[in-house]
Design a protein around this nucleic acid. Structure first.
Lengths: 335, 335
DNA sequence: CTGAAAGCGCTAACAC
DNA sequence: GTGTTAGCGCTTTCAG
């Protein structure tokens, strides 16, 4: 086995032309190559199974066709849908996405960011929840700043906590609207199942809901930001004996966990208790009772992110707001 | 803004040492650098916000830290879960995953494969259904062969249709076991909601179920390999007036669509009709009625794929079989 | 232990 | 039009 791929030099030799001509023939250079030579080069390339070395091209050209994407967990439908939007849009532009998943460990974020930076992608897209942790934010900036200073682009899909172009999810506003809607349906004693306190999504959605609720304070139970977290939180809520008539789980996954817990405990949703989520994960649109939620255009958010990446940088970071749309379904019937 | 990132040369100059020394200090070379110099280099690197250029390193070293992953649709939980397993395992090895999603258009597969090949990743992982299309298979080989010949590794997670190391999903066998189980539960008149005929998953799961069914031929309705496909197929099945007492949708997504269609038509699942799926998508484990299905260890499959990538190549392609486990839940109660 | 210099595969001036 | 050649940023002999 030829432990070596065919190079442009090989092709040039095979075609009996110079390196430069081979290069010009195989890649859309502005220079024109005579048809006959052009043909000879192409034929030689095919014969040799030649595939240009993108790394070498990037080096010579000084720019890559790569994009970095950093998500919390690619197996979470929230992120995989954003990733799909981004990846498809990127492919249309001839860009390749390098995927990094922190698997929920934010410490890994910096390390992964470093890896992405080393690859010298055109841009890095940060999807996933920001925290408020000053130290962490500073360390992030420490990686991001030099990347940006040397011409890299950074785009976030999250809370606007970083000084970079951001697709901003209006979490507060969405949760607020949801609260108003639920209150209007006749509910009176809400509970919130939220995620970890340090995550801004958790806080924004919780605070939004609370502020949108007309009177009184919702009961709040916190746990992990996933199905099992919702499951546990709901059990704890039920254990506490708190009298509530509706539950807002700050994302659909937690809402699913909550409904599962209710089932275990013989609590009928929505008769005994109404449940609402957030995100409108497509895979979950067929569950019963159908889940009231706040729809986020996840695929579009991914595309928007690419849009920002492609746009030329501005002095002030851009903020592209994405509003959630309240979707009332069977899980919160009128009381 | 310095439209140029700091290079090793910059660092060397800043530290007052040679290029070679800077290189040795910053990367674990076998050569040892005197502590003082070592320190000086590291300090200079930090001061300059230096990040090694991975592309240049790959060129010089002749090998990259990249991995290509090609999936049908990253927003499909089946693939995103495999991707998560692969990405996490890869990150542990210091490898970065380049993600390509054909978004359901198999024509794109070749093009994307070309892109992956150009990047000179250590390996390319092909996840997603193979077809039987001779011409397509040949074209695939046309891309894959030179890649392999020049030292690249290729691993598939699918049907063993390509002459490469493969994590083989035992679709036939799983569907067969499911059929036996369902028959044993007392069902007598099955229908199969399958995907496109040219996809091997569709055929394998359909054939497996049919061959596992003790007597008679199941009714078969084909549509797209997704939720909406299941939805439409179920409607068509119901329209046909065929008398069936259970339905096997060849994946969980189709099963969800089928259950939604039943709901629309006033068909009670599982009282009027039992439904089973395949894959055991984790997000769907909480639906009601709980879905009988064949569980696939998707995350592990991703890890296995990396395992094969890392293993040294063998003369004969390896086949790592993955068996599905039948999980009986409420959607197929004993009759 | 440290430094000089030859590449890695390709592009882009710059000549002819 | 085509060929020559100087890099791109880094690793790695090969000498000291």
């Amino acid at each position: 086995m030829a432990a070596r791929a065919a190079t442009l030099t090989d092709v040039a030799k095979e075609a009996g032309v110079s390196l430069a001509t081979a290069s010009r023939a195989l890649n859309g250079s502005d220079r024109v190559v005579r048809a006959e030579l052009h043909d000879r080069v192409l034929r030689a390339a095919t014969r040799l199974g030649y595939s240009p070395n993108a790394q070498a091209q990037s080096m010579a050209r000084g720019s890559t066709d790569l994009l970095g994407l950093l998500v919390n967990d690619i197996s979470d439908p929230y992120f995989s849908t954003i990733a799909a939007g981004l990846a498809n849009a990127a492919e249309e532009q001839g860009l390749l996405v390098m995927l990094c998943s922190t698997a929920g460990r934010p410490e890994r974020e910096l390390e992964l960011l470093g890896a992405l930076r080393r690859q010298r992608g055109r841009a890095i897209v940060l999807a996933g929840s920001r925290t408020d942790d000053r130290a962490h934010l500073r360390e992030l900036a420490g990686q991001l700043d030099p990347f940006v200073a040397s011409g890299g682009r950074v785009v976030a899909v999250s809370e606007p906590k970083l000084p970079v172009d951001t697709v901003v999810v209006e979490n507060r506003r969405g949760a607020q609207a949801l609260a108003a809607e639920i209150a209007a349906l006749g509910y009176r004693r809400p509970a919130i199942l939220t995620g970890p306190e340090h995550l801004l999504v958790s806080r924004d959605r919780r605070d939004g809901f609370t502020s949108g609720w007309p009177s009184g304070e919702p009961v709040v139970v916190a746990d992990e930001f996933c199905r099992d977290g919702g499951f546990r939180a709901m059990h704890r809520l039920l254990d506490s004996g708190a009298e509530v008539d509706c539950v807002f789980a700050i994302n659909d996954l937690m809402a699913m966990g909550a409904m599962a817990a209710c089932r275990e405990r013989g609590v009928d949703v929505p008769r005994d208790l109404a449940v609402a989520g957030f995100d409108d994960i497509s895979t979950l649109r067929d569950v019963t009772p159908a889940l009231t939620t706040v729809r986020l255009p996840l695929t579009d958010m991914g595309r928007e992110a690419l849009d920002l990446v492609l746009a030329s940088p501005t002095a002030k970071p851009r903020r592209r707001k994405v509003r959630g749309e309240v979707i009332v379904r069977e899980s919160t019937p009128r009381r």
